[in-house]
């Protein structure tokens, strides 16, 4: 058992490779996950779920190593410090949420005398305290997602791994779930790995991302640096759009149309003046104008 300290990453993948027959799910992926909320991002088939299954000890890597707080993933002690919320249904319909969570707390090693209180507390934190004695089978999709999240939290883990936690939720439910995930990290002090293919979820929630594509790590960075302002400005006009673009062309200002807005790259002082002059000359009314922030979706567009 390794002694965890502040320098030990919560999760560490070293040249992690996983083959399912001829299919390569992970290809020498190396990354670390530290405290806070980390998004494990990638399209379907990128290797996100495989990586999570390896860290949970549910499957073993073909080669490379995966460590949980410095311990081997097959070590039961390592698993006792993790929580997992799967994407698929995993709840017994005939049991009440209170009984189910109590049982799961005990299976996580918590003594029975404390398990019931922990279960009730956790259900209160996820907003299901009043409904805790109802059979889970009668819950809505949003409530079931909360029970799934609660069972991952009930034993007070150091890190929870959430697999597509907003799947199947309506916009309100999705916002509530993402707020809850933020609260877990900020108020409860439990780190989160959020596996999703929804970039907006990651942008709204995560501090760091690990982007996987075809089993390889394409990007691993903090979200702030990936969504910083760029030297591209966008201009959205209410009228005379064609005249405006003609004036830009006349002034040799490179530009591209993106939906309702016009993007102008590599803007410096002189180019900015030319844009201003083109707007005046075309008598176009500005709706919006400003530097464009990078979006995580750009990561998929590049390379």
């Amino acid at each position: 058992m390794a002694v965890s300290n502040s320098s030990t990453p919560l999760l560490e993948a070293r040249d992690l490779t996983k083959l399912y027959g001829n299919v390569q799910a992970l290809d020498a992926a190396s990354f670390t996950v530290g405290p806070g909320i980390t998004g494990l991002l990638g399209p379907n088939g990128a290797g996100k779920s495989t990586a999570i299954r390896i860290f949970l000890g549910l499957t073993s890597a073909t080669s490379g190593s995966a460590l949980v707080m410095g311990d081997d993933t097959r070590d039961p002690y390592a698993r006792s410090r993790l929580g997992y919320m799967p994407e698929h249904d995993c709840l017994p319909p005939n049991q009440s949420a209170a009984n189910f969570l109590t049982h799961m707390a005990e299976v996580s090693g918590i003594p029975p005398s404390r398990s019931r209180a922990l279960a009730a507390d956790t259900l209160r934190h996820v907003g299901l305290f009043e409904e805790r004695y109802r059979p889970i089978g009668g819950y809505s999709t949003g409530m079931k997602q909360r029970v799934k999240l609660a069972q991952a939290l009930v034993h007070d883990p150091v890190l929870i791994l959430l697999d597509e936690p907003t799947a199947g939720l309506d916009p309100t439910g999705r916002t509530e779930m993402l707020n809850l995930i933020r609260r877990i990290a900020r108020e409860f002090g439990i780190s989160v790995v959020l596996s999703t293919h929804l970039m907006q979820d990651v942008e709204r929630t995560c501090d760091n991302i690990v982007l996987l594509d075809l089993g390889r790590v394409k990007e691993a960075s903090d979200v702030a640096s990936l969504t910083e302002e760029t030297e591209i400005i966008y201009v959205e006009v209410a009228n005379n759009r064609d005249q405006f673009t003609t004036e830009l062309t006349t002034r040799n200002v490179e530009h591209t149309s993106e939906g309702v807005s016009i993007s102008i790259p590599d803007v410096d002082g002189a180019k900015f003046d030319a844009v201003r002059d083109a707007l005046v000359a075309s008598e176009a009314r500005i709706v919006r104008m400003g530097p464009r922030q990078r979006a995580l979706i750009d990561l998929f567009r590049t390379n």
Binding site: P76, Y77, S80, H103, E106, V107, S108, G109, I110, P111, P112, R114, L118, D121, H125, H155, D156, E187, F188, G189
Partner: peptide
């Protein structure tokens, strides 16, 4: 009082096994 971290005893596999058996 907000979220309270659990600082009590963790009995590990033995508790898990007993729970599974009794359940």
């Amino acid at each position: 009082i907000g979220y309270q971290s659990y600082a009590g005893e963790r009995e590990g596999r033995s508790r898990a096994w007993k729970t599974m058996l009794w359940d």
